[in-house]
């Protein structure tokens, strides 16, 4: 396995007022392998989202550097990125299909090909019958599936997901998690997935990055030894429980 993404000594400080500084991220060192599924868990405000924003280039690190395949992060790397937000963030004036096609329009890609791919992706997430609907006609879970398709349309090497399922109920959440793993097993993107939910983190990940409260640092990285493809059976596997317990303790320990 090769290293796709490495964060070297990343620090991020905010200045919300002139006499006030908030250190969002302490010192983050992380190597992400190609085609790896990483989840990041941590208490609220520990800078999980900040990590994703730094990788996506929306924010710049105060210190340290981010390397993609050994090259410092630059604007052209955006071609490799897809992002899913906590909210579906769909454009209400566009149909489901046109929402998925938005990144291709912006990047000036061949729309004919993109259209076929969009229809295929929407089929994968079970929305074949909704492609010409307005996003508002869809349930929240369906909207989030559309936004996953939008992130996947440009076939990103790196998929950044910022608590995408946080607002969903437990059953929908599990269904959509499994769907994500199914798609991932086909597309084999590298995924960085931020969550609050320990079960979700273990179920999805190859490795779980556990963070400390602010200023966020990496407390530990937990390997998940469960085989793939993952099913609901793995939720009741002893090694699933022991992973979850380890993470729970890591989080609890640091909260004290």
């Amino acid at each position: 396995m090769t290293t796709l993404l490495s964060l070297e000594g990343i620090k991020k400080t905010y200045w919300p007022a002139s006499n006030q500084t908030i250190t969002a991220l302490g010192k983050i060192d992380l190597e992400v392998q190609d085609r790896e599924f990483i989840t990041i868990v941590g208490p609220s405000g520990c800078g999980k989202t900040t990590i994703l924003k730094l990788i996506s280039g929306v924010l710049k690190p105060t210190k340290g550097r981010i390397l993609v395949e050994g090259i410092p992060l630059q604007n052209s790397h955006r071609q490799l990125l897809g992002m899913v937000f906590q909210q579906p963030a769909l454009l209400p004036w566009r149909t489901v299909l046109d929402n998925v096609l938005l990144p291709c329009e912006v990047k000036g890609q061949d729309m004919h090909k993109a259209r076929a791919l969009a229809e295929e992706l929407l089929g994968l997430v079970g929305l074949n019958n909704f492609i010409n609907r307005n996003p508002r006609e869809l349930s929240y879970g369906m909207q989030q599936r559309v936004s996953i398709c939008r992130a996947l349309i440009s076939d990103p090497r790196i998929l950044l997901m910022d608590e995408p399922f946080a607002a969903l109920d437990a059953i929908t959440r599990f269904e959509i998690s499994r769907l994500l793993l199914e798609i991932w097993s086909v597309k084999k993107n590298t995924v960085l997935f931020v969550t609050h939910n320990i079960q979700e983190a273990v179920f999805l990940a190859d490795r779980v990055v556990v963070m400390t409260p602010r200023p966020g640092r990496i407390a530990s990285i937990v390997d998940v030894p469960l085989p793939r493809p993952r099913t609901e059976k793995h939720l009741y596997d002893p090694s699933f429980s022991s992973c979850a317990e380890t993470i729970h303790q890591l989080l609890g320990l640091n909260a004290l």
């Binding site: 996506s56 929306v58 454009l91 938005l102 912006v106």
Partner: peptide
């Protein structure tokens, strides 16, 4: 305009005009 929509425009690599015409103005 929703912050996430603006982040989306940035992650997609949209330039000023694209993010204005496709996201900010319609919104």
């Amino acid at each position: 305009v929703n912050r996430e929509l603006l982040d989306l425009a940035e992650v997609m690599g949209a330039d000023w005009l694209q993010s204005f015409l496709k996201i900010r103005f319609p919104a």
